[in-house]
């Protein structure tokens, strides 16, 4: 569904790349999570895949179209939910969707039905400008489904939403995926990635560090973490150490030798911990 080979992008058209030699493939029906700290190049990559940014260097095909020569009809198959909601604030929620659906050549979904799906069923006649941030975000999300896309780009779909709505959004995403929609999900949130993604790619400073399924990653790293709580003087301290790393094993020995241990148990690593181990970077 998506194939990216040796993609580079520089905003200043020089050697300062925001995205460096990025390659990956996404197969049909897959949920692919694109994870990385702020400024890693996630939105830049997504911008190129959706034609918002010009392709500078590399080979990219999306939904069977070569991104070098973008055709508008390609967007009949694509849905895109933006990180920053972007709707006409002077139009009502329903008017926004009514207008947007006219810009596609394929069968589109009923605006009211979509509004209800994201919990805005009774807010359709209110101007989007009067919506709260979360409501605008949900409207943007709903809009991205209007053309029944087979490839769906989601940029931080649950950020800033309250937990119950976030979980509804998650179930919509799962449902769509079950119907066969391929999903490219960009996020900071490792729990969402863990829950939704078939595979994740870790990107840091414009470079992809690793691509694998959360399941594999956990098999590799899982049950090999130990949380140890100890007393240093009067202070209680806590550390998470991996059995995989020589350094960590040494540290554990040191703690066992020198301090009074309060609790100690092994656990499954979270995706976040794995990310930090792999990239040496926090996910901020």
């Amino acid at each position: 569904m998506i194939s990216v080979k040796n993609l580079y992008h520089s905003y200043s058209n020089d050697e300062k790349y925001a995205v460096k030699d990025v390659s990956f493939e996404i197969t049909e029906g897959e949920v692919f999570g694109f994870l990385g700290p702020s400024g890693a190049g996630k939105s830049t990559t997504q911008g190129i895949l959706t034609g918002l940014l010009q392709l500078q260097k590399g080979d990219v095909t999306v939904a069977g179209y070569d991104i070098k020569h973008i055709k508008n009809e390609m967007f009949n198959k694509i849905g895109m939910s933006f990180e920053q909601s972007n709707v006409y604030s002077k139009m009502t929620g329903k008017e926004n969707l009514e207008f947007y659906r006219k810009l596609f050549d394929v069968k589109t979904r009923d605006p009211q039905e979509l509004l209800e799906l994201v919990g805005l069923g009774d807010k359709g006649d209110i101007k989007a400008g009067e919506y709260s941030k979360g409501m605008k975000h949900r409207l943007t999300f709903a809009r991205s489904m209007i053309n029944n896309p087979t490839l769906w780009f989601l940029d931080e779909p649950t950020t800033g939403l309250d937990p119950s709505i976030a979980s509804e959004i998650k179930s919509i995403i799962k449902e769509k995926n079950r119907e066969g929609v391929t999903i490219f999900l960009t996020t900071h949130n490792m729990f969402i990635a863990d829950e939704l993604c078939d595979r994740v790619g870790f990107i840091v400073d414009g470079e992809i560090k690793l691509i694998d399924s959360p399941k594999n990653l956990k098999l590799q790293y899982g049950e090999k973490f130990v949380d140890v709580e100890y007393v240093d003087g009067k202070e209680a301290k806590k550390e998470s150490l991996s059995f995989m790393e020589k350094e960590d094993i040494g540290r554990l020995k040191e703690i066992l030798d020198s301090y009074e241990i309060r609790t100690m148990h092994t656990k499954e690593a979270t995706l976040e911990e794995i990310f930090i181990k792999v990239t040496g970077r926090e996910l901020v």
Binding site: Q84, V87, F104
Partner: peptide, 14 residues
């Protein structure tokens, strides 16, 4: 400012 042009750019309209 509202990001409208970007939303428009990812539709099948030119």
């Amino acid at each position: 400012k509202e990001g409208i042009a970007m939303a428009y750019a990812v539709t099948a309209s030119k």
